[in-house]
């Protein structure tokens, strides 16, 4: 089997990241940073969702909760003692990862739509908690004044460029992780859970343990995506952090791109994310969810296995 090793893939992905950074710097338009940050954030969210939803077949409707947990961890720590954003990302990952593990533990015996409803309930519970928690702003929301520049010695980097670079790095880490999992023993185990849990157990796959690993990893990546968000947005309120668009996009992007491979969420996030950014500028931001809905309906009819599935099917037909 011809395949690129993980090390090589990481190098290539890193190089592409550097090229994107250089191009963005050369263009130097602030709006471009803002728009691309959102798309990168969705790449992380979609990839994270896919680790549980695509690989294991457990549909999580509570993505927004994990994202918001990351964001609110940052707000909480910012109020106590402002730490560098990369550290906040690590903390956000830990908080959301632990909650993911807890959710996995509590919902282990739920399958299909029951699991999906439980995740939705988790989002509602967490949002209620945050709305009533004054320290992180409660329902009023919290302001985080973003510094104009990040200063490292004599270097001055515009803060939005810094956040963009961080999110780019996160997207690369998420994609490399997803691809590595997919090709490992863990990935094979995840796929057996998606296909048939009873048969998986009979083959010796510890399905409960693997499900916990999946919920923790998936949650952690969503928390990572959320951690820098308060700095990006400047003003965080529960309704935006727990917004419907995160839950819907995290599901729609992998579905449209294709759920069985790491490429799917990437393709879906870039496609849907760009379309939404374009619509926001040309029409209105309210059109975003409409676009997602229409595209989802379209793809479910035309390409139920997503764009990646469609391409694979074409290639298979061509070969035979």
């Amino acid at each position: 089997m011809k395949s690129v090793t993980t090390a090589k893939f990481s190098l290539i992905a890193g190089a592409i990241g550097v090229v994107i950074l250089l191009i963005a710097h050369a263009v130097g338009v602030d709006y471009l940073y803002f728009a691309s940050y959102t798309i990168l954030q969705f790449i992380v969210l979609a990839t994270a969702w896919n680790i549980l939803g695509g690989y294991c077949g457990y549909v999580n409707f509570g993505s927004a909760a994990f994202f918001a947990l990351g964001a609110y961890s940052s707000v909480f720590i910012h109020k106590l003692y402002p730490l560098p954003v990369p550290l906040l990302i690590v903390i956000g990952a830990m908080v959301s990862g632990v909650v993911g593990l807890g959710m996995g533990y509590l919902t282990l015996r739920l399958r299909g739509s029951f699991f999906a409803i439980a995740t939705l309930a988790l989002a509602v519970v967490l949002q209620t908690l945050v709305v009533n928690w004054d320290f992180v702003g409660g329902s009023r929301g919290a302001y985080i004044i973003r510094p104009e520049y990040l200063e490292i010695g004599s270097f001055k980097i515009p803060y939005i460029e810094y956040l963009f670079a961080l999110m780019l790095a996160l997207a690369i880490i998420a994609l490399v992780s997803a691809r590595t999992i997919e090709r490992s023993q863990l990935g094979f185990g995840f796929a057996t859970i998606r296909d048939d849990e009873l048969a998986a157990e009979a083959c010796g796959v510890p399905t409960l343990k693997l499900k916990l690993i999946a919920t923790a990893i998936s949650g952690a990546f969503m928390g990572m995506a959320g951690a820098p968000f308060p700095y990006y947005i400047g003003y965080l309120q529960p309704s935006s952090a727990f917004g419907l668009e995160y839950a819907v996009n995290s599901i729609a992007m992998p579905m449209i791109g294709g759920t069985t491979s790491w490429v799917g969420p990437l393709v879906g996030a870039v496609l849907l994310g760009s379309a939404q950014q374009y619509a926001t500028v040309t029409i209105s931001s309210a059109v975003n969810l409409l676009i997602v809905g229409l595209m989802l309906v379209g793809f479910v009819i035309i390409a139920p296995n997503g764009i990646v599935g469609l391409v694979q099917e074409r290639l298979r037909r061509k070969r035979s």
């Binding site: 796929a191 057996t192 296909d195 048939d196 009873l198 048969a199 998986a200």
Partner: peptide, 8 residues
């Protein structure tokens, strides 16, 4: 009833 892993 055979329960193969369908996607593999």
């Amino acid at each position: 009833l055979p329960r193969p892993f369908h996607s593999m």
